[in-house]
Simulated assay, not measured.
Amino acid sequence: METRLRIAVQKSGRLSEKSLKIIRDCGIKFGSDSRLLKEEADNFPIEFLYLRDDDIPRYVYDGVADIGIVGRNEFDEQDLPLEELKDLGFSKCRLSIAVPEGFPYHGLKSLEGLRIATSYPGILAKKLKEATVDARIYEISGSVEITPAIGVADAICDLVSTGATLASNGLREVEAIYYSTAIMIGHPGLSMEKRAILDRLMLRVDAVMRADDYKYIMFNLPKEHLDQAAAIIGGMKSPTVTPLLDESWCAVQSVVQESRFWDVLEQLKALGAQGILVTAIEKMAD
C-alpha cells in the first residue's frame, strides 16, 4: 500500500480556502466536494482530513494527521509539543482587547480586577501575567462580543480582522496583544517515508510562496547604464542581458522583490529604461 502523508485542513472558511489554494498552486490535484471529510490527491502521495480549526493541533499531536495548516493562535493556545514547519503568511488577524464605548482604557492595567471574556485564556493569561495584571478570565467558546452587554464580562479579548463585529456590539478595540497567521505544523515523530514526502511538499510550498514575493521584469536600456541598473535590481545572481539590433542598447531580464518594485521602477526610468514589462511569477526555486 502506498505511503501517504496525511494533512489536516480546516473544513470551511477563509483559512480553508487559502490553505487549499496554496496546495493546488503546488500542482497537487484533488476534488472540491465540501461534504467530504477525507480524500486523497490524484497525483501526489497526500491525504486530506477536513476538520475544525481548533481540532487540528490535537489530531496532529495524536498522530491521526501527520501535518496540519492552522492559525498560530490555536497552535499557541493549545501549546502542544509539535513542530512549526512554516509560517504561511496568510489569514492574518490579531487578538485584541475590546471594551464598551465610554470605558476609560489606559493600557492593560485598566483591566485590574475586572472580568475578561475570551476564547483564548492561555494566550490572554500569559499577556496579563507579563503586564502584572490580576484579572478574572472567563473562557467562552463563542459569541464573545455579547458578554459585556449581558453582564458576563467587563471587557473581551478576541480575534479581530476588521472590527465591524465589535462595533455592532457596542465595543471598541483598544489594544492588540497578539498577532496570528496561518502556519503549517507537523508531528515530530514522522517516519522516514513520510518525512521524505513532507520534504517534497515543502519544496513546492517554498517555490509557490517565494514566487509571490517577486516580479519578473524585462526592459530595454542604454548599455552605458547597465552596471548601474544591475546594482539597482540585484536579482537571484545577475540580470540576463541580450544585445539589440541597436548596438548601444540591450534588453535586460531579472527578478525584483515585490516590496522593492516601485522604487526599482523609478530608478530604472531615471536611467533611461524603456519598454518595461512586468509579469507575475508562478513558481520560483533556488
Rank of each mutant, 00 (worst) to 15 (best):
E112P: 03
Y138I: 15
R195L: 08
V241L: 05
R200T: 11
G163M: 10
L166I: 04
D158E: 15
M184F: 05
L51T: 04
R136F: 09
M202Y: 12
L268H: 04
E258Q: 11
I23G: 00
S238W: 09
G89Y: 07
H106P: 00
F48H: 08
I150D: 11
T132P: 00
A41N: 06
Q253I: 00
D158W: 00
L51A: 01
L201P: 07
L245C: 09
K29S: 10
W262E: 14
V133M: 07
L51K: 08
L49A: 04
G235V: 03
E139D: 13
G68A: 08
K129S: 13
M284D: 05
V9T: 01
K38Y: 14
A270C: 08
G142Q: 13
L49I: 13
E258S: 12
L166E: 12
G275P: 02
I197E: 05
R6F: 12
L80F: 08
L277T: 08
G68Y: 12
G113D: 02
S161I: 15
Q267D: 11
D42Q: 14
P222H: 13
E39D: 15
Q228L: 11
L80M: 11
G189Y: 12
I146P: 00
V152A: 10
L82V: 14
R94Y: 07
I7C: 01
G163Q: 10
E247Q: 14
G122M: 07
Y179W: 03
S119I: 01
R58N: 09
S12H: 15
P243C: 05
I46V: 15
R4H: 13
L88S: 01
T162I: 02
Y61N: 13
I140F: 06
L190H: 03
E84F: 02
L226D: 04
G163V: 04
V264I: 12
G186N: 05
P57S: 07
L277E: 15
D33G: 11
K215A: 10
D213F: 06
M236Y: 06
W249C: 06
D212S: 10
G186W: 04
D206H: 09
I116S: 04
R24T: 04
L244H: 09
Y216R: 07
Q10A: 12
I46G: 00
L80A: 06
L244P: 05
A155E: 05
I123R: 01
L37K: 13
V9W: 03
K126N: 07
A125R: 14
T118G: 08
T132K: 14
F44A: 01
L201H: 03
I56P: 03
D286Y: 11
D55Y: 07
A273G: 03
L37V: 12
T132M: 09
Y105K: 07
